[in-house]
Amino acid sequence: MSPPTVAARYSDLPGSATPRILEGLLAALCVLLCAKFALADPLAAPLAGPFAYVTNQGSHDVAVIDLASGTRLATLPVGRAPAGVVAMQRQHRVFVTNPESHDVSVIERGTTPAGDKVVAQLSAGLAPLGIEADEGSGRVYVADMFADRLLVFDAATLERVGEVALGKAPSGIAVDTAHARIYVADRDDNAVAVIDAATLRRLGDIAVGIHPFGIAIDAARGQLYTANVYADSVSVVDLVLGKVVATIGVGKAPYCLLVHPTLPLLYVSNQHSDTVSVIDTKTLRVTATVATGAYPEGLAMHPDGSVFYAVNWMDDTLTEHDAWTGERKRTLPGGSSNRGFGRFVVW
């Protein structure tokens, strides 16, 4: 008997991507209903969205951009040199890392972006950068790059509830909710740390390419990807085997990664090439390399899966790209040295 495929093995494990897809559909339906309701009120402007919460390193604020119209609806002052961001749909909160003021800003979302406000500034070690959240458990994970640790916050109470010692220069974070695992790219160790989300115990490390920064989980295929900045490559880690099974050459200085929620596609921002690589995650081949703005960093998906956005640090722009081909469709004005390192789009 031939060994089971990764997909088959994963289907045996509890949980799957399905609840998340349903959740997305419900959120979309809710928004449509809300929009319809709002339209019925002649005094209320129709709800647009979704919204991008983009960190502007140079102006120390977050721009809230309506992705339908491409216009900035609000500007929220946060800490110094904001970089990482995670928008929590269910919690109506957006968390932003400020490496230079060593804290995390908490944005409470209003009914419209005009009502958004910063409600807290959480002390977060020496250099908080990478950030990810699990909406199910309501936890926010922050990589403290200079103190080599992961900080864990409760998204509701804003208490710091845990800490995990990591390797050198922890950067990107990915959460596998189905299997209660947290993965952190320990950049200067060329490795990924594996953490049990329930016990916050570090279970081990997986060697990857040189200088991994961005990281993404692909639950449907049981894989994890890392963007290896100094190797110009993406490592593909089989989560069951716990090791690299393939290495894909991409552009220069790959930085951030994005996995499509339903299609077998992975996107990679190549900072020194001013491009995004589109990778077919079934064949593990690059199917397209498309122009972005200069120094693309953060990548995030439109909730309907039709387009994704690249935040271009050098250009102060966002570019919108077709999900299938990667082709650039629009260029939106961004902010000063905008980064958007994390999941920055929500309804």
Partner: peptide, 15 residues
């Protein structure tokens, strides 16, 4: 090798 060298918290730019 820059590969083993950490850097400051945020990248700067000049145009």
């Amino acid at each position: 090798s820059p590969a083993v060298f950490a850097h400051g918290p945020t990248r700067q730019k000049v145009v």
